[in-house]
Amino acid sequence: MAMETDLIRIGTRGSDLALAQAHETRTRLMAAHGLPKDAFEIEVVSTAGDRIQDRPLAEVGGKGLFTMEIEERLSDGRIDLAVHSAKDMPTELPNGLHLSCFLPREDARDAFIGHSAQKLLDLPQGATVGSSSLRRQALLRRMRPDLNVVLYRGNVPTRLRKLAAGEVDGTMLAMAGLRRLNLADQVTEALPLTSFPPAPGQGAICIESRIGDERVDALLLPIAHEETASALACERAFLAALDGSCRTPIAGHARFSDGKILFSGMILTPDGRDAHEIETDGPAADAAAIGRQAGEELRRRAGPDFFASWT
């Protein structure tokens, strides 16, 4: 039975990947409620993070640069829900908004795409690798201190074009994004979660909406994925305990096994020389507490001087 509703307005960034994620959300909602495509309107919103391409995001404001303009439209009612990459979301959201739904998580691994070598460890000494992520840059420097790691901004197709043109010898992208864009055939090496741990939230699509919006809550309920929500509660609590932002090289990944959450986390200095890791587990019902305690423990181990080096 179709759900009776007015036009459902979905806010998103305008990149190919963001639009693919918005379209996936729409497709799932259409199937869950028997709705036609024209029951939805996808509104593309230009964000500061998309417009600023010449500097590291950490220098100009961090994660919120990809969400602020979209959240303004959500708060004032111009859109009904917003579709985001979970790893782009700050741990603190504007008053009145919440992450109300997570879709089933895609592959959380990082992918290496090599131009002069297919595998990261096979790159020649001094090769140039481009990345916009402080976490990936730090992990690259930790694994291969000899590499020339450079800032590499742009959406997925832009980065691939730069790579093909020989601007860098290799780059790192999220496997999930490449899969969603049908570009997984570009990957030359999928890096193990153990040796190259992902960003908290990597591979997950989240939906943000207004707290107390019963219409949207009912709309999203059938497509919400409980395991992904629990894993992200753990990872985001870990991030929050570390005051994580785009300034902080932080990795964290939660997964399910036999009814428990298994969590592994890491913090690094930007040069990759100093790192602290943790592995822990517990009941899925305690996901947020597990993540928070892991973050607090790493903060204690690292000491205040470690974090001072990030600012």
Results as ranks from 00 to 15, higher is better:
residue 78 R to C: 02
residue 111 A to P: 07
residue 58 A to K: 13
residue 81 L to R: 12
residue 74 L to Y: 10
residue 62 G to S: 12
residue 137 Q to Y: 00
residue 136 R to Q: 13
residue 145 P to A: 03
residue 83 V to N: 02
residue 51 R to D: 13
residue 148 N to G: 02
residue 77 G to L: 01
residue 57 L to N: 05
residue 72 E to P: 04
residue 80 D to T: 10
residue 84 H to T: 01
residue 103 L to F: 09
residue 83 V to C: 03
residue 53 Q to Y: 05
residue 102 F to I: 02
residue 50 D to I: 04
residue 93 L to S: 10
residue 53 Q to F: 00
residue 82 A to S: 13
residue 144 R to D: 05
residue 52 I to F: 11
residue 107 D to L: 00
residue 148 N to Q: 14
residue 143 M to R: 13
residue 119 K to A: 02
residue 147 L to D: 12
residue 111 A to N: 06
residue 58 A to F: 07
residue 100 S to V: 08
residue 69 E to G: 02
residue 55 R to S: 07
residue 112 F to D: 12
residue 64 G to N: 12
residue 102 F to Y: 15
residue 107 D to F: 02
residue 138 A to S: 13
residue 54 D to K: 04
residue 73 R to I: 00
residue 101 C to F: 11
residue 73 R to F: 00
residue 135 R to M: 15
residue 131 S to R: 08
residue 101 C to W: 11
residue 114 G to M: 01
residue 105 R to V: 05
residue 143 M to L: 15
residue 146 D to K: 02
residue 76 D to S: 08
residue 128 T to C: 09
residue 80 D to I: 04
residue 149 V to T: 01
residue 134 L to Q: 12
residue 152 Y to T: 04
residue 61 G to S: 06
residue 68 M to W: 13
residue 61 G to Y: 00
residue 75 S to A: 14
residue 91 T to M: 08
residue 115 H to D: 05
residue 124 P to L: 02
residue 137 Q to G: 07
residue 63 K to V: 02
residue 84 H to A: 06
residue 135 R to V: 14
residue 130 G to Y: 03
residue 64 G to W: 04
residue 128 T to K: 13
residue 58 A to T: 07
residue 75 S to H: 04
residue 99 L to H: 03
residue 94 P to F: 03
residue 108 A to N: 01
residue 126 G to T: 03
residue 135 R to N: 15
residue 81 L to Q: 09
residue 98 H to V: 02
residue 113 I to G: 01
residue 128 T to Q: 11
residue 95 N to Y: 03
residue 144 R to V: 08
residue 119 K to M: 00
residue 136 R to V: 11
residue 148 N to M: 08
residue 77 G to A: 07
residue 64 G to T: 08
residue 139 L to N: 12
residue 119 K to H: 07
residue 148 N to V: 07
residue 77 G to Y: 06
residue 61 G to E: 08
residue 110 D to N: 15
residue 74 L to Q: 14
residue 133 S to C: 06
residue 72 E to L: 11
residue 81 L to D: 09
residue 122 D to S: 12
residue 141 R to Q: 15
residue 140 L to N: 06
residue 88 D to E: 15
residue 104 P to M: 03
residue 126 G to A: 04
residue 86 A to Y: 10
residue 73 R to T: 00
residue 102 F to K: 06
residue 55 R to A: 11
residue 94 P to M: 08
residue 88 D to T: 14
residue 117 A to T: 05
residue 96 G to Q: 09
residue 77 G to P: 09
residue 101 C to T: 15
residue 122 D to R: 10
residue 62 G to K: 11
residue 58 A to M: 10
residue 127 A to Q: 09
residue 74 L to V: 09
residue 126 G to P: 06
residue 146 D to I: 04
residue 89 M to L: 14
residue 145 P to R: 03
residue 130 G to V: 04
residue 126 G to D: 06
residue 133 S to D: 13
residue 145 P to C: 03
residue 110 D to Y: 13
residue 152 Y to N: 14
residue 100 S to F: 03
residue 120 L to R: 04
residue 97 L to V: 08
residue 105 R to D: 04
residue 83 V to E: 05
residue 121 L to R: 13
residue 89 M to F: 05
residue 150 V to S: 04
residue 103 L to G: 11
residue 80 D to V: 03
residue 135 R to E: 13
residue 146 D to V: 01
residue 124 P to G: 02
residue 112 F to L: 08
residue 125 Q to W: 01
residue 53 Q to G: 05
residue 124 P to W: 01
residue 135 R to T: 15
residue 145 P to D: 05
residue 78 R to N: 03
residue 92 E to A: 14
residue 81 L to G: 08
residue 60 V to W: 08
residue 149 V to W: 07
residue 87 K to I: 05
